[in-house]
Each structure stands twice: as structure tokens, then as C-alpha cells.
Amino acid sequence: MPSFNLDERLARATTLLTRLGLCQLRLMHDSRWPWVMLVPQRDAICEVFDMTPLDQTMLTFETAMTAKALKQVTGCEKINVGALGNQVRQFHQHLIARTRGDPAWPGPVWGHGEARPWDEAARTDFTTRLLDAL
């Protein structure tokens, strides 16, 4: 596998849950939303078109697989998927379970209030159910 170094800002904002075929699956340190991130384990990738066609296909597969598991575990109404990269250039993709009445509904989660750390028991329960669903 090619070399891979995770951007330190992504490392600080997330916890590694598992490694999929291409991506690391990471949990955001904000309990207000079930919010995970996929980070392809490739260096020097800023945009999806920087990846090989095979890696693009794997990213699509892993995104769909993770989104389906996230929806199954949370019972949410919508999965938001976004790859912004304005602050951290290393390619990473957010998957956020959204439900009517959540703290930012129906607007975007970015810039809404202050992050709330996960309670250890809630984090363990959520991550166990998500990993089981995968």
C-alpha cells in the first residue's frame, strides 16, 4: 500500500474506528451529530480526481457502505456527505446523520455552536453498533 500520513488537524478532531479497504473510518469529536469521516489512506490527495480510478471506485463503495450503516444505526432522515477541504487540504469526506430537530436542522452543521465531546458510554455504544452494521 502507498505511504499515508494523516493530517494532524484531522487526527486531533477524530478517533480512528477502523480501516476499510481504502479509507480510515474516523469518528468526529462532536456528539451533537452521529458524524464520521472517511480518509483515503493515500498521500498527496487533495481532490477526488487526484485518486486513481480504482481508488475513486473504492471511495464510492466505502461511502455507500458507511452511509447505509450510519442510517441503519441512527434511524436518521438524511445522510449528508461532504468533502470541503477548505481548511484541511488532505482529502477527507464527512458523513453526518441528520434528523429533523437536530441542533442545526435544516442548516449545515459547520459553524453551528460549539462541539460537545462524546460521553464515553455513548461513544462506545454508537461505535460498536456502527462497526457491527458495517
Rank of each mutant, 00 (worst) to 15 (best):
85 G>V: 00
26 R>D: 07
64 A>L: 10
42 R>A: 10
107 G>E: 12
56 Q>V: 13
78 K>L: 02
18 T>K: 04
131 L>K: 14
40 P>K: 10
50 D>P: 08
44 A>N: 14
16 L>V: 08
9 R>S: 13
69 A>D: 09
68 K>R: 09
83 A>Q: 09
125 D>R: 09
124 T>H: 11
108 P>I: 01
13 A>D: 13
120 E>M: 04
60 T>S: 11
51 M>H: 07
29 H>P: 02
77 E>W: 01
81 V>P: 10
129 R>Y: 12
6 L>N: 09
106 P>Q: 13
67 A>C: 10
123 R>C: 05
117 P>G: 01
15 T>F: 06
41 Q>V: 02
12 R>L: 15
54 L>H: 11
1 M>L: 11
102 D>G: 04
42 R>H: 13
61 F>L: 05
18 T>I: 03
93 Q>S: 12
12 R>W: 12
59 L>R: 00
106 P>S: 13
66 T>M: 08
37 M>K: 12
99 T>G: 07
116 R>V: 11
76 C>H: 02
47 E>R: 10
40 P>G: 04
31 S>N: 07
134 L>V: 13
121 A>S: 14
104 A>G: 03
90 Q>N: 15
6 L>F: 08
118 W>F: 10
82 G>L: 02
102 D>S: 06
88 V>A: 12
63 T>R: 08
65 M>S: 10
45 I>F: 10
27 L>G: 04
100 R>C: 07
58 M>Q: 15
124 T>I: 03
17 L>E: 00
48 V>P: 09
125 D>A: 15
66 T>P: 03
98 R>T: 05
61 F>G: 08
67 A>N: 08
130 L>P: 13
27 L>R: 05
1 M>T: 09
69 A>H: 10
19 R>D: 05
113 G>K: 08
122 A>H: 15
39 V>P: 11
19 R>K: 12
72 Q>E: 06
20 L>Q: 05
101 G>P: 03
64 A>S: 10
27 L>I: 07
15 T>D: 06
117 P>M: 02
109 V>G: 10
44 A>C: 07
52 T>C: 09
82 G>R: 01
120 E>G: 00
97 A>M: 04
96 I>D: 05
94 H>Q: 01
101 G>T: 00
31 S>I: 02
133 A>M: 09
37 M>A: 08
78 K>G: 11
117 P>I: 03
105 W>L: 08
95 L>G: 04
88 V>Q: 07
49 F>L: 08
75 G>R: 11
4 F>Y: 13
25 L>T: 00
81 V>A: 14
33 W>Y: 14
3 S>D: 07
